[in-house]
């Protein structure tokens, strides 16, 4: 059971739901099919550090945190920021 550092403190992973790679949503009014489906389907999926979104089911909060997908180390938990229309 991972002990995940959330912005509120360490929590068991069973209190959390994994959302996925932190993505940037393209502007829906200007996006192309390629860019939108890249957002929908393609993943970086590295074996290493990755910025991810998790949902804290107890505090009802979405947050982001960096995780090494090969070792399950975590670092830098933060609250999410709006990124509408901006590329990471």
């Amino acid at each position: 059971m991972l002990l995940v550092p959330t912005p509120f403190g360490p929590r068991n992973a069973s209190d959390l739901r994994y959302v996925g790679e932190a993505t940037s949503r393209p502007d829906p009014s200007t996006t192309s099919p390629e860019a939108w489906r890249d957002y929908l389907y393609l993943e970086h999926n590295p074996a290493g550090w990755l910025r991810e979104t998790w949902y804290d089911r107890v505090n009802r909060v979405y947050f982001q945190v960096e995780r090494n997908t090969a070792t399950n180390e975590f670092r830098n938990p933060t609250m999410p920021v709006a990124k509408h229309g901006k590329k990471a």
């Binding site: 059971m1 992973a13 739901r17 994994y18 074996a47 991810e52 997908t69 070792t71």
Partner: peptide, 10 residues
Amino acid sequence: PFNNYNVGGS
């Protein structure tokens, strides 16, 4: 329930 390259099991 989450992406992982670690096969340690839980």
